[in-house]
Simulated scan of single mutants.
Amino acid sequence: MSSTHDKALTGEFVSSLAQIAAEDWNRIAGTDYPFLRHDFLYGLELAACTTAETGWQPCHLLLRRDEELLALMPLYLKSHSYGEYVFDWSWADAWRQRGLAYYPKLLSAIPFTPATGPRLCAAQDADAELCWSAALDAVQQLAKEREISSWHLLFPEEAVSQRLLDAGLHRRTATQFHWFNEGFNTFDDFLGTFNSRKRKSLKRERRRVEEQGLKLVTLEGSEIREEHWDRFYHFYQTTYAKRSGHGGYLSREFFLNTAAGMGSQVVMVIAYLDDQAVAGALYFRSSKTLFGRYWGCVHEFDALHFEACYYQGIEYCIANGLSRFDPGAQGEHKIQRGFRPITTCSNHWIADPELSAAVGDFTRREAGHNTQYKQSAEGFLPFKQQGGA
C-alpha cells in the first residue's frame, strides 16, 4: 500500500490571490522575505498594478496533494517585458522576424522587484524535487495548451537556478552590487576598510549633504504616517516622470494601503530642508537583508541620492545587525562606495526547439561576458590592499 507521499501532485492556476486565503499562502511562502507575502502581492492586484490591463495578469501556481496545499509559485501572464529587469527585447524581435508571437509569455518573478529570493515555495515536509518536477510539468503543459512562447523565472537563489539548468532550462547571469556587513559596529568601522583616497572622497560626499542644510530622518513601520506616504508618493511619481516620462509602476493606493500595512518590514528615509520634506528613499527588509527599492525627490541636491539610498541604508544595517544590503539593479557608481559585485541568475524555458537552441547559445556567450565584467568590477572596489593604508 503506497503512502500519501507517493501520490502525484496536481497543479492549479489562480487568476487572483483572492482565490487563496492569506494564511494558507503565507504558511507555505513564509513572511520573512517581504515580496512573497500574500498582502504584498495581493496589494499589487488591489492597487491595479498587476492586472491584465497593465500586462501583469496573475496566474499563480498552486500544487496540491488531494486537498492539501504543498507548494506555490508566483506566476504572471505577461503581454510585454516592462518591469522585469532581465531584458529580453531582442528575443521578442527574433520571434517577430520568424512570424511568431513572443507575447504572451509566462513569468515567475516579483513584479518590479529585481531582488533575489525564493520562487517555488514548498511546505517543510514536502519533497522539493517532487515539487519542482510537478511545477515544471504544470507550467509547460499550460504553455502548450495556450500556445505560449516561453516561461521565465527571474532572480532565483543560485541553487534553484542550478537545479533548473540541470533540468534543461537555459540560465542567464547578470551583475548587481551588494553591501555585506563584516561585523561592523559603526559606519566608521566600515570606512576603515577603505583606502585613504576613497575614504576621504566618501566622507566629503556625506559632509556635502550637511553643508546644504539637509537633515535625514529614518522611520520604521508605524512611525511612517499617512502624510509621509503621501509625500513619498509625490517624490516617487515626480522622479519617475522625469526619468521615463510616466509616473511609475506603483500607485498611491499601493503605498498607502499595502506598503503601509507591512509593519516593521518597511523603512523610509526622508530628507528635510528647513523642515520641508524634499526627498525620500523606501526600503523593505527581512531578518537578514535590507532591500533598497524606491527613491524620489522634488529638487536635486549634491550627493543626496547617495546619502539617502546607500549610506543611510548601510547605517541601518549596522545598527540593526543585518548581514546584507541589496540596493537594487544596475549602478556601477555603487562600487566605489563599497558595494561588491555579485552574480544574479534567471532561467528560461522556450517552447520552440530551434529558438530554444538559439537562446541557449546566446546565454552561454553572455555568461562569459558577465564573468569578465564582474572580475573587472572587482578591481575598482575601494578597499585597502593587503597591508595598505
Rank of each mutant, 00 (worst) to 15 (best):
R252M: 03
E253Q: 15
F254K: 06
F254M: 06
G261Y: 02
M262Q: 14
M262F: 09
G263T: 11
S264F: 00
V266L: 02
V266P: 01
V267S: 00
V267W: 00
V269Q: 11
I270E: 05
A271C: 10
D274A: 15
D275K: 10
D275N: 15
Q276L: 14
A277T: 04
A277L: 09
A279F: 08
G280A: 08
Y283D: 07
Y283L: 09
Y283N: 12
F284Y: 13
S286W: 01
S287H: 04
S287Y: 03
K288W: 04
K288E: 15
L290F: 11
F291P: 02
F291S: 00
R293V: 00
R293N: 01
W295F: 11
W295C: 06
G296D: 06
V298Y: 00
E300A: 11
E300H: 11
F301S: 03
D302G: 02
D302V: 08
A303F: 14
L304F: 00
H305C: 08
E307M: 08
C309H: 04
Q312S: 13
Q312D: 05
Q312G: 04
G313S: 07
I314G: 04
E315L: 09
Y316H: 15
Y316W: 15
A319E: 15
L322I: 14
F325H: 09
P327R: 01
G328T: 01
Q330V: 13
I335N: 04
Q336C: 14
Q336D: 13
R337H: 01
G338F: 02
